[in-house]
Amino acid sequence: MADGEQIDMARSQVFGEAADLYDRGRPGYADALVTEVLEYAALDGRPALEIGAGTGKATALLAARGTELECVEPDPRMAAVLRRNTAAHPGVRVRVCTFEEWDPEGRRFGLVLAATCWHWLDPDRRRDGVHAALVPGGAVALCWNPQGVRDPRLHAALAEVDRRHGLDDTPHGVLASHYGELPGDWVGLPGWPEDELRRDGRFTDLRTRRFREELHYGTDRYLAHLASLSRYRILPADRREQALSDTARVLDAHGGGITMGHLSDLLLARAR
């Protein structure tokens, strides 16, 4: 295994260490995105499959619309929070395993959703697994929620903290103005999979959408968000705490928080 692959594997396995922080600090998805997904999928009572459901940021929104969901989440600590967050929705079933290990038990689904996790899946197997899980004409929805800092002065001050601690690709590492106009036009984020699906003849009717919001985080919530991220989780504890403490001082000096331009980028496709 190459060094880069080892780092990616390490990052993919650390979220559960901070499952409650992840749930409290991570941004969610726009309600309009969920509406778009459900209108496109036209489930008509068919169940949906969610890959890498985490603590249920997207799950809870779908379940609240009456969607029956099978959720695959590899980390038992994340799955415990997911069960808690969806306890009011009896149509949600949680399976603790990777998507590659998951057994569909002969079932097929009207929708497969992967919210900010497609890049963690095995690139040689993920399209096969998704296509096999879908009914003919079933929908796949892939989405991410990148963010960018509104204030250039705050961005510059936080960049200095990141440089001091050897951090890269942090949520405040990009100015909101640096994002392009099209879905997937990102800076420093995992690759947008539109070309990947377009080259695969088993998927058709590709559509993309972008939803925009503005989010303000108080200092404590933003630190919880950072502390849940893999690039912080893999740091030694003392280095992580110092980086977060230095970040807090910058935020408090700039009014006690940070305002982010928040995007929800969506890619839709159908199984032929």
Results as ranks from 00 to 15, higher is better:
42 A>L: 05
100 E>A: 14
102 W>P: 03
102 W>V: 00
71 C>F: 13
81 V>Y: 07
82 L>P: 06
136 P>E: 06
67 T>R: 09
75 D>G: 11
107 R>D: 03
98 T>E: 01
127 R>F: 12
23 D>P: 01
29 Y>C: 08
68 E>S: 15
80 A>L: 04
77 R>A: 15
124 D>W: 07
60 A>L: 14
97 C>I: 05
124 D>G: 09
26 R>Y: 03
129 G>E: 01
20 D>N: 12
128 D>E: 13
72 V>C: 02
18 A>W: 08
111 L>D: 02
61 L>S: 15
127 R>Q: 12
72 V>T: 00
124 D>K: 10
66 G>Q: 09
121 L>I: 03
120 W>N: 00
101 E>K: 09
51 I>S: 06
117 C>I: 09
120 W>S: 01
108 R>Q: 10
49 L>T: 07
62 L>V: 09
124 D>M: 11
69 L>K: 06
77 R>C: 13
47 P>Y: 05
104 P>T: 02
110 G>A: 05
50 E>D: 05
127 R>H: 13
88 A>D: 14
56 G>Q: 13
70 E>Y: 15
81 V>N: 03
88 A>K: 07
32 A>T: 11
28 G>S: 11
115 A>C: 02
126 R>L: 06
21 L>C: 10
102 W>S: 00
43 L>V: 09
129 G>D: 05
86 T>N: 13
35 T>H: 14
52 G>C: 01
107 R>T: 05
131 H>A: 15
27 P>A: 05
91 G>H: 04
122 D>Q: 01
24 R>I: 06
21 L>N: 10
120 W>F: 01
140 V>F: 01
124 D>C: 05
132 A>M: 02
62 L>C: 12
